[in-house]
């Protein structure tokens, strides 16, 4: 009886944290269906912002910038990060610690400092701030997330199988593709997805490294904070959020099924 009470209290606590984390998200979803433009007034249920969304070229262009930057930066970061992990795994302790230490800097440093330092670099090199500078910045802060996801998986792999492949005449690339990659692939994939998500959600570093005329969703929202957010933005976020949610449910279902088989 006491045990049951404790169990219930545990679920209750989890539920409270969940409400805390998801209350703003629910609020935004509700606002996206609000016919009134004001955030304070409920004007009835409506799809008008969803219809308006596809007519708003500024938001659509910010969305496409955001997605292109997130995808490209995650891809490049995954490539550079995974290569570095494979190399680091075979290094002596000192250079490895040094390389890991550098990858920790942007994770532990404040975003505002990382953003400012990159901005000063670009300006000093007379590199114009715009789409490319944002992309370079995003690759930079994404690399550590890839390293963080791939390194633990790589440590679990067995070195001898790779060496055996080499002894049996496989080239480095072939041995990597056939022996190491299958083992670390979950880590590489989660590194890519994490990098993609981080890039998508970044505001501070983009804010400092972007130039006039280029906007991601974050910077677009920030510029609208004072004059009032366009409700189309709520509609867009709701769509993004729901599509990821549905995707996750499908993936989970699939992996459940394969687990049962």
């Amino acid at each position: 009886m006491v045990k049951k009470g404790v169990q219930a209290a545990k679920y209750f606590y989890i539920a409270l944290i969940f409400i805390f984390l998801y209350a703003p998200i629910v609020t935004l979803v509700v606002l996206s269906f609000n016919a009134s433009k004001s955030r304070a007034v409920w004007g009835g249920f409506s799809f008008r912002w969803y219809a308006a969304l596809f007519q708003n070229s500024e938001i659509i262009s910010a969305l496409s910038n955001t997605l292109v930057i997130a995808f490209t930066s995650a891809l490049v970061a995954t490539l550079i990060g995974t290569m570095a992990c494979v190399a680091m795994n075979r290094m002596k302790k000192l250079p490895r610690t040094l390389m890991m230490g550098v990858s920790n800097i942007p994770m532990l440093n404040a975003d505002i400092v990382t953003g400012i330092s990159l901005m000063l670099l670009f300006i000093a090199l007379h590199f114009s701030l715009g789409f490319v500078s944002v992309l370079l910045a995003h690759i930079t802060f994404n690399i550590p997330y890839v390293v963080l996801s791939v390194m633990p998986k790589l440590k679990q792999t067995n070195r001898s199988t790779y060496e055996a492949a080499l002894d049996l005449g496989a080239t480095n690339l072939y041995a990597f593709r056939k022996v190491i990659l299958p083992d670390i692939f979950p880590g590489v994939l989660s590194g890519f997805l994490l990098a993609f998500t981080m890039s998508l959600d970044d505001f501070v570093i983009t804010h400092f490294t972007k130039g006039p005329g280029v906007d991601t969703l974050s910077t677009k929202i920030y510029s609208e904070v004072r004059k009032g957010i366009k409700p189309e933005m709520y509609a867009l976020s709701t769509l993004l959020f729901l599509s990821v949610l549905i995707l996750l449910v499908i993936v989970n279902r699939r992996s459940d099924k394969t687990a049962k088989q």
Partner: peptide, 13 residues
């Protein structure tokens, strides 16, 4: 998952 709802919007909420 919450990160797919923009951080600024979540704070605005």
């Amino acid at each position: 998952l919450p990160m797919w709802m923009n951080f600024l919007l979540r704070t605005l909420a």
